[in-house]
Design a protein around this nucleic acid. Structure first.
Lengths: 228, 228
DNA sequence: ATAGTACGATAGTAATACTATTATATTTGC
DNA sequence: GCAAATATAATAGTATTACTATCGTACTAT
């Protein structure tokens, strides 16, 4: 990662923001401290007013970047999935063997997040926790179909599609490659949530056990020996 | 179902409500129209004031039954999982063969919901849609650990546990029975959501395909031939 | 006949989720 | 280096939400 990503700007659907937060200092501050404050308060209790106080700025100034906190969440989640997509492509691109490629993909998607210094104002570890706790709320709304049409979820869908394609490569006969891909993406977040709050509902306590669980799940489903 | 259930009252943690809604006409109206209105407006836009207008009653009267709409959601979700648990036990109890038992369990949990006339004031089909769209919001909160300790999620956990036990019976060597159980429960809701809003992310379009998908997933994971 | 409970009506509060306006500070273009 | 454009801050204001509190009335149980 490190150097390479530093020069890349993740492209996020322009309709999500009113003004590009990557274009100014205040914008970056909104993202940086938005992440920290959503994590601290939870999405329900998070407000632009509180964020304004936190960054010594005005509520109305934040509204110039985002229409509302829902759009900010969409921005953060898009960014996260874009960042993960990049890692997926980067890590799997050079792998020839289909099985190993898929195995690596599952690892990248389900592993625990480490800090990535490429984006100084974004704490990926905290952002990942926001994704675990708040991502569903970005699409479990009455506006989901409209917002989907606007393309607010394209990055996530592209990521799911990439994973699905890798599954198809391993076993073209399998009937549910996309369902399986979406199960891995959502299910992985869910297992991490259970680990933190409902310990009795998961066996994934150790650091790499989520990866192990999904790797087994997928390769057994595809009736392929999980080599390694 | 029908007759048998009619005489059974689902027991819901008393801390969830201030006054038992099953104990009065108004209480039942709150539940009945609460379900319809949450479905219509979505949980975010749903308020007790609006519900009061809908049932020709007063906002403050509803507050005498539930502290807030979050508690109402907890009540509804507890009721739903209790209802499903009952069906699970009822449908699988007499099955001796472990594999068939698990197969039936997966079917009950992942199948499409049909109206159950046993509870006249509860529309199970609509309630199921609320579960699909809103269940996550009941636990993706900052208060989850406190509320979990209060026992607000016991019914769901008991259901997951029952499923997990059936999985263990089929293959006691399998390392992730509970994770698999929670994946089925959550994943099933998610596949139905995808079918309605993100068609490109699932192959489950037909009525019984969610069941088929999870049945295959589970039996392949347990390395047991899915007989039937 | 009376005490208790349930419900409805009204009022009130603090916070939320914004919008609008104006003033000031900063940047940029020439 | 100055004017114009742009960005931000400050303030005010609105409708709605999410409640709490009080009071009067209606029904109900003894």
């Amino acid at each position: 990662m490190d150097r390479l990503l530093r020069s890349i700007k993740l492209e996020i659907n322009e309709k999500i923001y009113k003004k590009d937060p990557q274009s100014s200092e205040l914008g970056k501050k909104i993202i940086e401290h938005g992440i920290l404050l959503i994590h601290e308060l939870g999405f329900e209790d998070f407000t632009f007013k509180k964020l304004g106080i936190q960054i010594g700025s005005n509520e109305s100034s934040i509204y110039r970047y985002f229409e509302n906190k829902h759009k900010l969440l969409l921005y953060l989640t898009s960014w996260y999935w874009g960042w993960l997509e990049y890692q997926l492509v980067f890590s799997t691109n050079s792998i020839q063997d289909k099985n190993l490629k898929l195995k690596k993909a599952i690892e990248v998607i389900t592993r625990e997040i480490e800090e990535d210094s490429s984006f100084s104002y974004i704490n990926e570890v905290i952002l990942n926790k926001i994704i675990i706790n708040e991502y569903s709320k970005s699409y479990l709304t009455k506006e989901v179909d409209k917002e989907n049409k606007e393309g607010y979820f394209t990055i996530y869908k592209r990521l799911a599609d990439r994973l699905s394609e890798m599954i198809k490569l391993v076993n073209p006969e399998y009937s549910f490659p996309t369902s399986l891909a979406s199960t891995i993406l959502e299910g992985s977040l869910h297992q991490y949530f259970l680990r933190d709050h409902f310990t009795s509902l998961t066996e994934c306590k150790e650091s790499n056990s989520v990866t192990l669980y999904f790797t087994e799940l997928v390769f057994n489903s595809l009736n392929i020996k999980n080599n390694g």
